[in-house]
């Protein structure tokens, strides 16, 4: 990959059952992800998608190209800028640095309205 290359967009829909499945698999019982009454009382329109689930999709958008047989995600930093609610999600990114041993991707996740809700920097190293 070369600097400036864009990842093919990963487009998906996150449903409430996806959230519940993730909560179970990740052992994440924070009520923000499942308690509708509580989130409404706190001023949110809907349950909030687990930040880590968005992060997992962000990583997936990159590992489709930087496949785990050749590249290992060595380091990543993700910022959840806005709460994400169930619905359509698009993930993409741009190669910021690249050589034979390392590729760095600046990645983003947009909600259904196109707003960037999560950004991250993913640093891949060559698998030894």
């Amino acid at each position: 990959m070369r600097v400036g290359d864009e990842l093919a967009e990963l487009v998906l829909a996150i449903s409430r059952s996806d959230l519940i499945r993730y909560c179970g698999a990740a052992n994440d019982l924070v009520p923000l992800h499942w308690d509708q009454d509580m989130v409404r009382a706190a001023g949110y329109p809907d349950v909030v998608v687990n930040g880590w689930l968005g992060c997992a999709h962000l990583c997936r958008a990159a590992t489709r190209v930087l496949t785990p047989d050749r590249w290992l995600l060595a380091r990543y930093a993700v910022r959840y800028r806005q709460p994400l609610f169930p619905g359509e999600v698009r993930c993409g990114g741009t190669v910021a640095r690249a050589d034979t041993e390392q590729v760095v991707v600046d990645a983003w996740l947009r909600d259904g309205s196109g707003r960037v809700v999560t950004t991250g920097q993913l640093e891949f190293g060559r698998r030894k």
Binding site: L12, D18, R21, Y22, G24, A25, A26, N27, D28, W52, L53, C55, A56, H57, C59, R60, T63, T67, P68, D69, L73, Y76
Partner: peptide
């Protein structure tokens, strides 16, 4: 599975996906 992974080694559980640490 909860992350929608399709990479075979992750799906089979041979190796953990990079965000498994969350669990």
């Amino acid at each position: 599975q909860a992350c929608g992974e399709i990479w075979p080694a992750y799906v089979a559980g041979d190796e953990a996906p990079p965000t498994f640490i969350a669990s």
